[in-house]
Write a protein that binds this DNA or RNA. Sequence first.
DNA 1: GAAATTTAGTAGGATGTCCTAGTATCTGAC
DNA 2: GTCAGATACTAGGACATCCTACTAAATTTC
Lengths: 172, 172
Amino acid sequence: MAPMSVPVPRLAADPIAEAHRQWVAHGWESAADGMAAITSLMRAHQIFLARVETVLRPFDVSFARYEVLMLLHFSKRGALPMRTIGSRLQVHQTSVTNAVDRLEAAHLVQRLPHPTDRRATLVELTRSGRALAEKATAALNAEVFTDTGLSPRAVNDVVKTLSQLRRSAGDF
Amino acid sequence: MAPMSVPVPRLAADPIAEAHRQWVAHGWESAADGMAAITSLMRAHQIFLARVETVLRPFDVSFARYEVLMLLHFSKRGALPMRTIGSRLQVHQTSVTNAVDRLEAAHLVQRLPHPTDRRATLVELTRSGRALAEKATAALNAEVFTDTGLSPRAVNDVVKTLSQLRRSAGDF
DNA sequence: GAAATTTAGTAGGATGTCCTAGTATCTGAC
DNA sequence: GTCAGATACTAGGACATCCTACTAAATTTC
């Protein structure tokens, strides 16, 4: 942190506003707003992912693996087929294989044969996996989710707008 | 695409709305909205990144490398120090090194010694790099940015809300 | 009932991101 | 002027994501 007596250096203008101006200057008015929206999304994602990963680091899980744990935590039996995990989280099967490999190595989940479909594999939360999910959630709630840096109204707007977007993209 | 006579299979409910319900059910009301907002952001990011990468694939550049090209394209001399690229794009120096390595291998940019600071390296857009930036932008404008799947009003709201957020996160 | 197709999961590889560590150079305090 | 600390960049490694290709098992078709 800079001492208070030292003026904070002038930061450059918002790079996205700058890009928007460039888009307009090049005659791409009709795409400028969309470009700004998508670029904003990319940056906001980066910012929040970093925050979340920082909070999760002491628990030795990534956000991707945390999402798997929570999905299992919320399921009736604490177990789901790999494939189901992939569709709920909207990630590629191979990403699920990767995440489950690591979770299993950390004894947070365990692979079990599916009782009726021998192609499928069930992923089951272990006792320590469930405990970790709860502790990590408490930390995320306290340190990230409760105060996102946006007003409650803005938070709601973001959720609504993006859910409209996800729906139009076939997310659900 | 499914023929019109075949009913579209019932998709599961929105997974984020479902997670929100779970959060509330577990007594985490004060964090539920923030969780939903951040999770929505993650999904929206994933959706748009995939769209953008699909459009850029024929040009053999990723979105990360495209951003570097555009930054150089918009600079006065078509050249910037590595470090400047990193701060403008808000990515780690090593990510810049990685992107520039690949862009240079594709002859889209070229590394030059900095005239006054021998520690620094200038990255300069080549003729073909500039041409590619223009063609890729035309494709992105036409296929992604002009129609994001959101209303113009929603697009503006997203930009405004997220810029407030980026500012509070120190993004500019 | 057998063959073709679809589905579930894994393996290997590419890309992008970050982190830590290391080298070279510049800056500023003394 | 020297030397300590800051700054610019690269190297190597950990993760996460996707893609293509492959095996095994279930389902559909005929």
